[in-house]
Nucleic acid binder design. Structure first.
Length: 922
RNA sequence: GCCUUGGUGGCGGAAUUGGUAGACGCGCUGGAUUCAAAAUCCAGUUCUUUCGGGAGUGUGGGUUCGAUUCCCACCCAAGGUACCA
C-alpha cells in the first residue's frame, strides 16, 4: 500500500505519547490560549460520530494556535455522573463506578485513535471523589452566602447574620424569598436556632424549598419531563402527576440581571445570547394584589401591562394555586376538583403546547382594586404553577390568551383601547391611547403605566416590579449516581458538614427508591456512610450539571488537594478563549456555569466573572432513529404500518436491533426485562416494521453511530478531514459516509506527489516557480482567514485545490512541500508528521512555525470582467487591471458580443464597478 | 404553544461587505490504461430548449442597475422548553 495510514498513525500517536508532546505548563513568556470542548458524558454506547466533530475543530484551532506561537491549554475529561449509567446499574446490578470506568476507557481509546492533542495529564472526572469534593465545597460556599442588592454581589451569610442581630431584616438589602417574614433585631435574637435556620434558608444561595415535580408513584420516584410521554412514564407506562416536594434549589434568580448584562462582554453567537435573554425573560411591570370577597386572603399577580388594569374582569389561577381549595364554593367544588385532578396529570409543557382553551370557575370573586367591581376567579391550564405567582389578572382586550379564554367561556371583553377593534382579536400593540379607564383616560399606554403604578402604590395594593421568567434552579435529584450533599439533619433543620469533611457515595443494595419512595441513598445504613452526623444524612444527590458548572477551572490545576484551583493558576490561564460545543446547552450548562463563575468571582476565588470568552456552537450530526409502537396500557407492540387501528405510545428502539426498518424481535425482547414477554402485531410480511425519523444523535434515542470503523478503513486523518468537509461546523447535518472517499483520495494524491512509483520519498531541490508560489500563498492566506472565521469546511476544499494545482504544475519542491505540510498539520497531523520527518526534520511538526503570507505573489495584472445584462452574466472579457471606469465601459461597449446581447436596443445605463463587474441595463 | 436555527443540482456543500449562482467533493455518463478488475488519468454533468436562447437558491410579495445575501408575509424541518447530557 502506498499510503499506509494505519502504520503511520500508530507510529505518531506512540511518538506523541512517549514524548509528552501535548503536555503544557504555565509559561509567562508566551501568550496563553485556552481551547475547551464541552465535557462529554461517557455513555455506554461509546463516542458517536457527532462528538469528534467539535473535538476535531477545537483540535485544529489548538494546533493552529500552537503553530502561531501560543501556549495552548487543551484538556479533556469526563462528566461521568448521570442517569444512563444509573439506569444500567438498575438493570444489571453493576455499580455505576465500574460501568463508568469501562465507558471512559473506551472513550479514551476512541479519542486516542483520532489523534487529538489533549494534555491527558490534566484529565478529570466529575464522579471522582477528588473532584466532587470540590463540587461539594462550592455548594458549601453557596449555602454560606447570600446576595446583597446594594453591592450587587454575593456576600458571606455571616454578614447577614450580623446585620440581623443589629437591626433585624426591616432594612435588609439581601435577596430573599417573597414570603420572608419581617422581624426586628430583638425578634431575631429571641428566635430559636431552628427558627433562625428556617429564616436563613430564605436568604441562602443554596436553600430548601417546596417545588413542583413529576411524581411517578409506580416507580416511586421523580421523573424528568424527558422520561414522561403522554402523561405516562416512558419506562413502564405508569401514571405521573404534579407533586409538591421539598428540594434543594440554587438562587440563580439573584444573578438574573448580571446574567443578562454579562452577555455584552462575551463573543458568542447572537442566537445563543438571544436564547439566554429570552430564558431569563426580564420584564417590567407591576405586582398587584386583589382582595377576595368574603375572605382575608389576597391574590397576588404580576402584570407587564398595569395600564390595562381597567380591562380586568376576571382572574385565572393555575390549578395548583394554593388558594384554589380555600376559595372554591360548594357548588363549584366537584367541577374544580375534577379539573385539578385532570390537570395534575399534564406536564407543564403539554399544557403550554395545548392550544385548546379549558378552565373552570371557582365560584369565588375578587374585588377590583380601583373600581370595586366583582371579578370572577377561574382556574385554567394556561397559567403555570411554577412561574410568577401562579395567577394572572385577565385583560381579554389586551392579551390573546385571555381573549381566547373569555370568548370560549362567554365572558365580557371590556375594550379600553381608543379606536381599536377587539371583536376579532386582542390588541397586544402598545402604541395605543387608553380609554374607558377612569383616571387613565386619554393617556398613552406608556404614561398610563406609570400613573397606574403610582396610584397602586398610593392605594397600597400594588407596586412597580421587575419580574424574571427565570426560576431558581432545582438542585436535588432522587437518584444514586451523583454528588451526595455535604448536609446532615437535626430534626428538620439542615446543617453543613465541617469544611474539611467530605461525603462519599455510600454503597447501597439496589439503585432504586425505597419502598416508601425515599431516594436510593436512603437505603444506606448508618455504617455505610463515610461520615454520619445528626439524625440523618441528606439522601438526595446533586443534578448532572453540578460538576460541569466549574470543570473548566479544575483543568488549570487538576490535582490540587488543598483548593479547587489555585488563584495563580486561574490568573494565568484565565477565561476559556474558545469554547466549542452544542447550542442545545444554551439554557442549561451555559447558564449554570456562568452563574457559578460569577459567584466564585464575587467571593474572590477567581478574577473573572464570565467563563467562556468566545464560543462556537457546533451543529449536531443527526442520526436516523427507529421507533416501536406500544399499544396503550399493554405490553403489545404493533407494526408501524398498522398503528392507525390502535392507540399507541411511540418509543425509541436501538438501531442495532433494526435492519432496513425491520425489527429483530428477539434482540428487542432481550433488551430489557420488561420486554421479555412483549407481544407483537406483525404486518402482512410477518415482520415488525419500525417507524423512523432524522433527529439528534443521542444515547437516549438509541440511534448512535461510532467513528471506529471509519478510522479502521480510512484512517484518522481522513476522518478528521471528512468531518470538517461535511459542511459548516455550526450547522445541523444528517450523518452519511458517502463522500469519505473524496477526502481520502486527496491525502493519497498528496502522498503520491512526494513519492515516486516505487513509493520512495522524493522531492525536488529546484527553486519554486512563480506559479508554485502563487498557489502556496493563495493557500496560506485562505487557510489563515478561514480558520480565523471558523470556516473549517472550506479549508479542506482549499487544501484540495492546492494539491490539484501542485499536481498540474508537477510541483514537489522541498520548500513548497514543507510549508504546505505545516498548513495541513492542524487538520491531518499524522500524515504531516510523516512527511515532515521524511523531509529530514527531526523535531515534531507541532513545533514548526506557521508559514507567513506574502501578498506580492498574488498581484494580478489582468481582470476577467464579467459582463451582465440586466444583472445576468453573459460573457467575460479580459482587461488590464489598470483601466479606469470609462476605459472599461468603452472596451465593453466595443466588444462584439455586447451588440449581440443588446439585440439592436440601446443601453439605458452602464454600471462599472472597477475590478468587479460590468452591468448593462436595457 | 413559546424561543432559536436552517431550507441552493441526484447528494454534502461554495459564493466573506448586495456584484460571475453551483467552487471543492460524492455520485452518474463517456473515454484512456488493463487479459480482466481495482486503482489511476482525461472529458462531461442545475433544469429546459426549436441550440438563438429561456428559467433557476422553500413559497408569495417588495427594495435595488443588480438579491442565495436586505425587508414583509407564509410553508416545511431540526434543536431547546427548566430532572437526558
Amino acid at each position: 500500500m502506498e499510503y499506509n495510514f494505519s502504520e503511520i498513525e500508530k507510529k505518531w500517536q506512540d511518538y506523541w505519547r512517549d514524548h509528552e508532546i501535548y503536555k503544557v505548563t504555565e509559561d509567562k513568556s508566551k501568550e496563553k490560549y485556552y481551547v475547551l470542548d464541552m465535557f462529554p458524558y461517557p455513555s455506554g454506547a461509546g463516542l458517536h460520530v457527532g462528538h469528534p466533530l467539535g473535538y476535531i475543530a477545537s483540535d485544529i484551532v489548538s494546533r493552529y494556535k500552537r503553530l502561531k506561537g501560543y501556549n495552548v491549554l487543551h484538556p479533556m475529561g469526563y462528566d461521568s455522573f448521570g442517569l444512563p449509567t444509573e439506569q444500567y446499574a438498575i438493570q444489571t446490578g453493576i455499580h455505576p463506578a465500574i460501568a463508568t470506568k469501562e465507558n471512559t476507557d473506551r472513550y479514551r481509546k476512541q479519542l486516542d485513535q483520532i489523534g487529538f492533542s489533549f494534555d491527558w495529564s490534566r484529565e478529570i472526572q466529575t464522579s471522582d471523589p477528588n473532584y466532587y469534593k470540590w463540587t461539594q465545597w462550592i455548594f458549601k460556599q453557596l449555602f454560606n452566602s447570600c446576595y446583597c442588592k446594594l453591592e450587587d454581589k454575593a456576600l458571606p451569610i455571616s454578614n447577614l447574620i450580623d446585620s440581623f442581630e443589629k437591626s433585624g431584616n426591616l432594612t435588609s438589602e439581601a435577596v430573599s424569598d417573597d414570603n420572608t417574614p419581617k422581624f426586628t433585631s430583638e425578634d431575631w435574637n429571641n428566635f430559636s436556632e431552628t427558627e433562625k435556620e428556617k429564616i436563613l434558608l430564605n436568604y441562602r444561595l443554596a436553600f430548601l424549598s417546596d417545588t413542583w415535580v413529576n411524581w411517578c408513584e409506580g416507580l416511586g420516584t421523580v421523573l424528568a419531563n424527558d422520561e414522561v410521554k403522554d402523561g405516562l412514564s416512558a419506562r413502564g407506562g405508569f401514571s405521573v402527576e404534579q407533586k409538591l416536594m421539598k428540594q434543594w434549589s440554587l438562587r440563580i434568580t439573584a444573578y438574573a440581571d448580571r446574567l443578562i448584562s454579562g452577555l455584552d462582554r462575551v463573543d458568542w453567537s447572537d442566537s445563543i445570547k438571544e436564547i439566554q435573554k429570552n430564558w431569563i425573560g426580564k420584564s417590567k411591570g407591576a405586582s398587584v394584589s386583589f382582595k377576595l370577597e368574603n375572605s382575608s386572603d389576597k391574590i397576588e399577580v404580576f402584570t407587564t401591562r398595569p395600564d390595562t388594569i381597567f380591562g380586568v374582569n376576571f382572574m385565572v389561577l393555575a390549578p395548583e394555586h394554593e388558594l384554589v381549595n380555600i376559595i372554591t364554593t360548594e357548588e363549584q367544588k366537584e367541577e374544580v376538583e375534577n379539573y385539578v385532578n385532570v390537570s395534575k396529570l399534564k406536564s407543564e409543557r403539554d399544557r403550554q403546547a395545548d392550544k385548546s382553551v379549558s378552565g373552570v370557575f371557582t365560584g369565588a370573586f375578587s374585588i377590583h382594586p380601583f373600581t370595586g367591581n366583582k371579578v370572577q376567579v377561574w382556574i385554567g391550564n394556561y397559567v403555570i404553577a411554577s412561574y410568577g405567582t401562579a395567577a394572572v389578572m385577565a385583560v381579554p382586550c389586551g392579551d390573546q390568551r385571555d381573549w381566547d379564554f373569555a370568548t370560549h367561556f362567554g365572558l365580557d371583553i371590556i375594550n379600553i383601547f381608543e379606536g381599536v377593534d377587539v371583536s376579532e382579536n386582542a390588541n397586544e400593540e402598545k402604541n395605543v391611547t387608553i380609554t374607558n379607564s377612569d383616571f387613565l383616560n386619554g393617556l398613552s399606554s406608556k404614561k398610563a403605566m406609570n400613573l397606574a403604578i403610582y396610584r397602586m402604590e398610593e392605594g397600597g395594593f400594588g407596586k412597580g416590579k421587575i419580574n424574571y421568567r427565570l426560576r431558581d434552579a432545582i438542585f436535588s435529584r432522587q437518584r444514586y449516581w451523583g454528588e451526595p450533599f455535604p448536609i446532615y439533619y437535626k430534626g428538620e433543620t439542615a446543617y453543613l458538614l465541617e469544611d474539611d469533611k467530605q461525603v462519599t457515595l455510600p454503597l447501597v443494595d439496589k439503585y432504586l427508591p425505597t419502598s416508601t419512595g425515599e431516594p436510593p441513598l436512603a437505603r444506606a445504613k448508618k455504617e455505610d456512610w463515610n461520615v454520619y452526623e445528626g439524625d440523618r444524612m441528606e439522601t438526595n444527590i446533586m443534578p448532572g450539571w453540578a460538576g460541569s458548572s466549574w470543570y473548566f477551572l479544575r483543568y488549570m490545576n487538576p490535582t490540587n488537594d488543598g483548593e479547587f484551583c489555585a488563584k495563580e493558576k486561574s490568573d494565568y490561564w484565565g477565561q476559556v478563549d474558545l469554547y466549542i460545543g452544542g447550542a442545545e446547552h444554551a439554557v442549561g450548562h451555559l447558564l449554570y456555569s456562568r452563574f457559578w463563575t460569577k459567584f466564585l468571582y464575587d467571593r474572590g476565588f477567581i478574577s473573572f466573572d464570565e467563563p467562556f470568552k468566545k464560543m462556537i456552537n457546533q451543529g449536531m450530526i443527526l442520526g436516523r432513529s427507529s421507533f416501536v409502537y406500544r399499544i396503550k396500557d399493554t405490553n403489545t407492540f404493533v407494526s408501524f404500518d398498522k398503528i392507525k387501528d390502535h392507540k399507541t405510545t411511540r418509543l425509541h428502539v436501538d438501531i442495532d436491533f433494526v435492519d432496513n426498518d425491520i425489527l429483530n424481535v428477539e434482540k428487542f425482547k432481550n433488551w430489557r426485562v420488561e420486554y421479555s414477554n412483549a407481544e407483537f402485531i406483525l404486518n402482512e410480511n410477518a415482520e415488525y416494521l419500525c417507524g423512523h425519523e432524522v433527529e439528534k444523535m443521542s444515547k437516549s434515542k438509541y440511534n448512535v453511530q461510532t467513528p471506529d470503523k471509519l478510522v479502521e478503513d480510512f484512517g484518522a486523518d481522513t476522518l478528521r478531514l471528512y468531518e470538517m468537509f461535511l459542511g459548516p461546523l455550526e450547522q445541523f447535518k444528517p450523518w452519511d459516509v458517502k463522500g469519505i472517499n473524496g477526502v481520502h483520495n486527496f491525502l493519497r494524491k498528496f502522498w503520491r506527489l512526494v513519492h515516486d512509483e516505487e513509493n520512495n520519498f522524493s522531492v525536488s531541490e529546484e527553486n519554486p516557480t512563480k506559479a508554485n508560489y502563487k498557489t502556496l500563498h493563495k493557500t496560506i492566506k485562505k487557510v489563515e482567514e478561514e480558520i480565523d472565521r471558523h470556516s473549517f469546511n472550506t479549508v479542506v476544499s482549499t487544501f484540495m485545490i492546492c494539491i490539484n494545482e501542485f499536481t498540474d504544475q508537477k510541483c514537489n519542491n522541498r520548500e513548497i512541500i514543507s510549508d504546505f505540510t505545516v498548513l495541513l498539520s492542524a487538520y491531518a497531523p499524522h500524515i504531516s508528521e510523516e512527511i515532515w520527518s521524511k523531509l529530514g526534520i527531526d523535531t515534531s511538526v507541532t513545533t514548526a512555525n506557521f508559514p507567513s503570507f506574502n501578498s506580492s505573489y498574488l498581484v494580478e495584472s489582468e481582470i476577467h470582467y464579467p459582463v451582465s445584462f440586466n444583472g445576468k452574466m453573459r460573457f467575460k472579457i479580459p482587461l488590464s487591471a489598470e483601466l479606469t471606469k470609462e476605459e472599461v465601459e468603452r472596451e465593453v461597449m466595443n466588444h462584439e458580443k455586447t451588440s449581440h446581447y443588446l439585440d439592436g436596443k440601446s443601453p439605458k445605463k452602464v454600471i462599472v464597478v472597477p475590478k468587479r463587474i460590468v452591468n448593462i441595463v436595457m
